[in-house]
């Protein structure tokens, strides 16, 4: 497997306030990689840097053999990086269908293709077809999550970055969303998954990185991380840690 994305020693800051240091992450083609860690560990910040919503103070990001460290987010989308931001961020006063159309902005000169892709997404999420003419802001949380996933897929990404896709969703829906993420990955899209629900994240991904107060403190295959006592204690709950020790 060849390397799709390689972030090397990223240093990230908001203004003068440093958030992350020495972040190095690699994602191979076809892989699902999880980024886990507590609230405020810098997971979202790392994702924002990869999607181009902030420029790192130091370090570099290579994507498909190209240096993208200083590229703005809209150019990265054109290269094949899609980000589903935390809190979903639908365009509330555009209809569900218009949200999907904008996801396909890359293909705006090919209306037939955009229509065909929207139909494919409606086949995956039949609920969205029912809601297609409704303003996205009036959809339920679960529907909005489907919409932003579909919207991200409309740009035909090579790498799909997801920030907390399970946040605020009912447990049953969470299972559905993770099923969908796996299906998207089977279709050939690499996935970088940021998730507070470490159990789901480690089950879905093949490799993982653990972020703690702005640095990577552990990394490896998810199966191994799930057995790591420190990871269990910190992110999978005390009971799991005891069960693992016993």
């Amino acid at each position: 497997m060849s390397v799709l994305l390689a972030a090397d020693s990223l240093e990230l800051a908001y203004g003068d306030a440093p958030v992350c240091r020495g972040i190095s992450i690699e994602i191979s083609e076809g892989e699902i990689v999880a980024l886990i860690g507590a609230n405020g560990a810098g997971k979202s910040t790392t994702l924002r840097a990869i999607a181009g919503m902030m420029t790192p103070r130091a370090g570099s990001i290579m994507f498909a053999g190209q240096d993208i460290t200083r590229l703005p987010s809209h150019e990265r989308t054109m290269l094949g990086i899609a980000l589903v931001p935390e809190g979903r961020h639908v365009f509330p006063f555009l209809t569900a269908r218009e949200n999907l159309e904008l996801g396909g902005f890359k293909n705006r000169r090919d209306n037939a293709k955009v229509r065909r892709m929207i139909d494919e997404i409606f086949d995956v999420f039949p609920r969205l077809r029912e809601r297609s003419g409704q303003n996205a802001g009036t959809l339920s949380g679960g529907e909005q999550q489907m919409l932003v996933l579909g919207r991200a897929m409309m740009s035909e990404p090579k790498l799909l970055c997801l920030d907390e896709p399970s946040l605020g969703l009912a447990p049953l829906l969470v299972r559905d969303i993770f099923q969908t993420i796996k299906a998207i990955n089977k279709g050939g899209t690499s996935v970088l998954l940021v998730e507070q629900n470490a159990r789901y994240a480690l089950e879905t991904a093949s490799r993982g990185y653990v972020l703690q107060t702005g640095s990577i403190t552990a990394s490896g295959l998810c199966a191994a991380l799930a057995k790591d006592t420190r990871v269990r204690e910190a992110y999978l709950g005390r009971a799991a840690a005891k069960a693992g020790a016993a």
């Binding site: 919503m53 987010s73 809209h74 961020h89 555009l94 904008l102 996801g103």
Partner: peptide, 18 residues
């Protein structure tokens, strides 16, 4: 539509490739 998207959420519009 892209213009309305920028009005509603400039950062997210950037993520669409706009």
């Amino acid at each position: 539509k892209a213009l309305r998207a920028v009005a509603q959420d400039r950062e997210t519009a950037g993520l669409m490739g706009i």
